[in-house]
């Protein structure tokens, strides 16, 4: 497959995968949690790396995925003291875990290919060089399978647990009364978000994952009032941002990840303007 097409596919699948857990983080007013998770999973990756000494080990994914719920648990532990609000607690937990990870990398993993630049910004350009071979046959870039797999995982989870996600997000009290544990769904969602973030991490780095998790769902939120259409719209916007971002970056000869994030912002602005116009028309029609 052509390298350029591979990069675009990885970008589109990554963004699409992020949009699904992102939609529910947004609806639960937990957008900043995605920022928190995308940073703290780095500690999970680093700790797992120290254990297995292999950057391509799937254990790194598991370490990272475990860090998401740990982050949420630590944050809630602080919130439960009633001494700080949720956002302050988030602001304390994630810089702590993230900075430990950065110190560990710079101090002990300097020789490994785990440097802070690639962690922060990702290395999508190099993704096509990392091939997946089965019995000596090259079947495509590893990143393609990783991002595709995570996208499919998110779609599957969404289809299975749509009803549970809806009720625990909208009315956690009724959900609890009816036996759908909001806590269980919350940790499930965090695990899915962390796993997805790890995949996105390789493509766009830890900072821009937040752009993919939140901006496309936020734009979709302004375009639709149907919970079924929300993740679908967000997936389309995310994937389009990935592809358009790639072409813009090639044309301007700048960072691919940066351009993709810019496109998510452009889509959000367009949705915002559309929403304002629609509301004004709606108000005018009422007169």
């Amino acid at each position: 497959m052509d390298m350029a097409i591979e990069i675009q596919l990885i970008a589109a699948l990554t963004a699409a995968g992020c949009a699904i857990p992102g939609s529910f983080l947004l609806l639960r007013r937990m957008s900043m949690v995605s920022d928190s998770i995308t940073h703290t999973i780095l500690l999970g990756i680093v700790l797992a790396f120290f254990m297995v000494q292999d950057l391509s080990s799937p254990l790194l994914l598991i370490g990272a995925a475990a860090m998401g719920p740990v982050t949420v648990w630590l944050t809630e532990l602080l919130v439960k003291t009633r001494l700080l609000s949720e956002d302050s607690a988030t602001g304390i937990v994630f810089p702590l875990l993230f900075s430990i990870a950065v110190i560990l990398i710079t101090r002990y993993a300097g020789s490994a290919h785990l440097d802070t630049d690639s962690v922060l910004l990702g290395e999508l350009v190099f993704a096509p060089f990392d091939r997946l071979t089965v019995f000596g046959v090259d079947i495509g870039a590893k990143g393609l399978y990783l991002s595709g797999g995570l996208f499919l995982l998110n779609v599957t989870l969404l289809l299975i647990f749509f009803k549970e996600l809806q009720i625990t997000s909208f009315d956690p009290v009724l959900a609890a009364v009816l036996g759908f544990s909001p806590t269980l769904m919350n940790y499930g969602l965090m695990t899915a978000a962390s796993l997805t973030a790890v995949g996105a991490f390789e493509a766009v780095g830890s900072i821009l994952v937040t752009a993919f998790m939140i901006a496309p769902p936020a734009a979709a939120y302004l375009l639709t009032e149907d919970l079924k259409k929300l993740p679908v719209t967000a997936v389309i916007i995310g994937a389009a941002s990935g592809i358009l971002g790639y072409h813009t970056a090639v044309f301007l000869e700048v960072s691919i990840a940066g351009c993709m994030a810019v496109w998510t912002g452009i889509f959000f602005m367009a949705a915002f303007v559309y929403n304002v116009i629609k509301r004004k028309r709606g108000a005018a029609a009422k007169c």
Binding site: F170, L178, Y221, T224, E225, D226, L227
Partner: peptide, 12 residues
């Protein structure tokens, strides 16, 4: 502002 309709809510 949650994206649900009246029927969605009653269905819950």
């Amino acid at each position: 502002d949650f994206p649900v309709t009246v029927l969605d809510v009653v269905l819950m």
